[in-house]
Amino acid sequence: MLSALCIEALAMPSLARAQAALGAPFTLTDPAGKSVSSSDFRGKWMLIYFGYSHCADLCPTELAEMIDALRQIGAEAKHVQPIFITIDPERDNGKYLGSYVAQFDDRLIGLGGTPQQVAEVAMNYGIRFKKIFNSDGSYSFRHTSNIFVIDPQGRYQVTFSHMSDAYMIASKMLELISERNGS
């Protein structure tokens, strides 16, 4: 019992720190090589997904759910900015990153940068990833696959796990948006 309390006491500050970092400002690079900051999206809800393009199954599925959620949100979706942050900026950059995100939706913005920049943003959002090398020298990632919601003032609101589908994302977003409009 005592040990359980201690663990909880130790865990609390780091959890609080992690939550404070969620929504922390970031500056990354878009496919055109332009610097893009989170503050550029002030006034919009940001839906941010961390993934990588060499992920054939899970990442396109999450992006598809996110875009489908925008469709279900309807007219209010004009206040929502979907963003894909790659955890593999060495391969996902420039024109390739641009055409990768454009496949899903014209509104989807792909962001990368230096591996250090990306790692810092991912850490702030509690995204863990680890490069796994295959026998042929190619690599993939073990990674957390979450979608984050940041409100129009740049404050973190909610996380959707990879188990969330478009309907769950859309209903929560509509709830958040209507709460905000009502207040």
Partner: peptide
């Protein structure tokens, strides 16, 4: 999905297809 919530792909050498079964290879 591991204990830390990280997802990883595992290569399967074989996929069992039981009698009278339908196996769906589908997203996620």
């Amino acid at each position: 999905v591991d204990a830390q919530g990280m997802t990883e792909m595992r290569t399967l050498d074989r996929v069992e297809i039981p009698a009278h079964a339908r196996i769906d290879l589908k997203p996620t």
